[in-house]
Amino acid sequence: MTNILIVDDDIHILKLVQIHLSEQGYKTFTAKNGIEALEILHKEICDLAVVDVMMPFMDGYTLTQEIRKQCNIPVILLTAKNQIEDKEQGFQAGTDDYLVKPFELKELSFRIKALLRRYDKKLDESIVRVGSTTMNKNSYEVQIGDRTILLPLKEFELLYFLMSKPMQVFSRDHLIEYIWGLDYEGDDRTVDVHIKRLRARFSKLTDDFQIKTVRGVGYSLEAKRE
């Protein structure tokens, strides 16, 4: 499910956009100001943010800059202003799109879908996600909430492979061939050792997934059910 963060100090607009996007099948998180929004982003993985410009404590431009420092997600700015200078400031802050109030909810949906498609193409298959756990094959980082974890190379590749194919069972031989290569001269105990290390690392960090042993066959990554 796609997660969308909505930030607006106008409760009426906040609820209206939340209801509309929930009906479109999105999971929504709401914040009344930038401080609340950043707290949500520390805890939840969001795929897109809809941000109002005029807010107390932190305006939408500043919030957009802070979002850019933390994560690579599209941002749509909502504003009552329609001056070219305001649009310029928004794009300089790092926004991807700009919608002037009052706006049609249907147009907001169109823009959200277009941005998600664009970002999906950018991300390609380099990122996999299960719950709040994200693996990035470009940076070889594992992100759990606001925590970044660096794994030894083979542990990363093994977990990435299993996470990219959840609920599928793979034999030790298959994993050896895919992760270590056909020329590998060790035995299949290597897989068991790496699985044991991954379980030890992540059992205390997250319950997003478990690596299950399928007796007589091999291993499977099971995602937590919502």
Rank of each mutant, 00 (worst) to 15 (best):
R117H: 13
P56A: 13
P56C: 11
N72L: 13
D97C: 08
H42M: 12
D97Y: 15
L78A: 05
A114R: 04
M54R: 08
F110P: 00
G90V: 05
P102I: 07
I67Y: 06
K43N: 11
T28Q: 11
E88C: 02
V51N: 02
D47C: 03
I40V: 13
F29C: 07
I76A: 00
L48V: 01
R68Q: 12
D96A: 01
E107K: 04
T62W: 05
I35H: 13
K32E: 10
E44R: 15
E39P: 01
I76D: 01
L41D: 06
E44L: 08
T64E: 09
K101P: 01
D86K: 04
D59H: 10
G94T: 07
Q83P: 00
I67C: 03
F103N: 00
D47G: 02
E66F: 03
K121V: 10
H42G: 09
T30Y: 00
L105C: 06
G25V: 09
I67M: 07
L105A: 03
A114P: 00
E88F: 07
G25W: 06
F103D: 01
V100P: 06
G90W: 08
R111P: 05
K27C: 06
K122G: 12
Q89G: 13
P102Q: 04
P74C: 07
T62M: 14
S126L: 06
T79K: 11
L78T: 10
I35L: 13
V75G: 02
E39G: 02
I35Y: 13
F103Y: 06
E66Y: 06
V51S: 01
L38S: 08
R117Y: 12
N33K: 14
D86P: 12
